[in-house]
């Protein structure tokens, strides 16, 4: 584990107990400039995780609760006529934060969802012909209830892959939950890292060496998903880039300056699962498709 990032993850593990793997993936996602989708039932600690991430990384944080009547303007902000100055001034919405928690994103109308996803993709907000840059770093954590809950607008598959990773938290195990109940202290988290440090790290991750053998492994995974015919939604080139980015960040977190196949395997399920799954399929089959794909492709070069 990278010395720099280890205390952060340790602190995170203290906050979200028993979810070590998810915590690491979430940090990995942040480090690789990606956005995170957390899919789970209410009360699993989605909000806690995102809040903890924002605090630990010293980023300003806003939470948007998505509801069916949420309008894009509520999120993005609006031009309001200033009577004193006799002109329109832009009042930024909550999206102008470094970490945005889009809670229960599938409760909002598709229009609002699209507005968020557009902002995520373009790192800017266009309003009445004016563009407003979003802060840097910009990290969206969206949470989503499982699809079969009533009154939801599931994200279309074309928009799901705007999220670098999707993770589910799931119920904690017996020990973890007991521990959680035991030390239920409300000691507030302190920021451990500055924004500058974060961007330095992201710069370091850019320079991580990726050998041909790893690139070919990723390509084999991707092309297997396309050629085998077993996957309704094969992985796109955007997906292969996402896998690579996440693998590099993971390698950095493992304190290596090169990527090995294990890095790819660690991030693969989180990166690929939501892209592979066809929207009609049952979400309970979680993590099965990506795992079957990993089991079918040998990481050692052919």
């Amino acid at each position: 584990m990278n010395n720099a990032i280890a205390p952060v993850i340790a602190e995170l593990d203290q906050t979200i107990i028993g979810k070590s793997a998810q915590n690491r993936l979430a940090v990995c996602c942040l480090l690789s400039h990606g956005h995170l989708l957390i899919e789970d039932l209410p009360g699993m600690g989605k909000t806690t995780l995102s809040h903890a991430l924002a605090t630990l990384f010293g980023l300003d944080y806003a939470r948007i609760q998505f509801t069916s009547d949420l309008l894009p303007a509520d999120m993005l902000g609006a031009n309001i006529f200033d009577v004193q100055k006799q002109q329109f001034t832009f009042h930024p919405g909550p999206i102008f934060s470094q970490v945005v928690l889009a809670d229960e994103i599938n409760r909002a109308s598709p229009k609002t969802q699209s507005a968020l996803l557009e902002a995520m993709e373009e790192q800017q907000v266009s309003l009445d012909g004016q563009t407003h840059e979003l802060p840097e770093p910009f990290f969206v954590i969206a949470t989503q209830n499982p699809l079969h809950q009533a009154g939801t607008y599931p994200l279309p598959e074309s928009q799901l892959d705007r999220f670098l990773m999707r993770i589910t938290l799931g119920y904690p195990d017996w020990q973890a939950e007991k521990q959680m109940l035991q030390n239920d202290n409300d000691e507030p988290l302190k920021s451990m890292i500055t924004a500058q440090q974060l961007s330095d790290w992201q710069g370091q991750i850019e320079t991580i060496h990726v050998a041909d053998a790893v690139l070919e492994y990723i390509l084999r995974l991707v092309s297997f998903s396309r050629e085998s015919g077993e996957y309704a939604n094969p992985l796109s080139p955007r997906a292969s880039r996402a896998i690579l980015r996440a693998s590099k960040a993971w390698a950095w977190m493992e304190n290596r300056d090169y990527v090995i196949p294990e890095d790819v395997q660690h991030v693969f399920a989180a990166v690929a699962e939501h892209r592979l799954r066809s929207p009609g399929s049952d979400s309970d089959l979680s993590f099965q498709l990506s795992e079957s794909l990993l089991a079918a492709v040998d990481p050692i070069a052919a």
Partner: peptide, 8 residues
Amino acid sequence: RATLGPED
């Protein structure tokens, strides 16, 4: 080994 990476 199946599809394990070298370190695993």
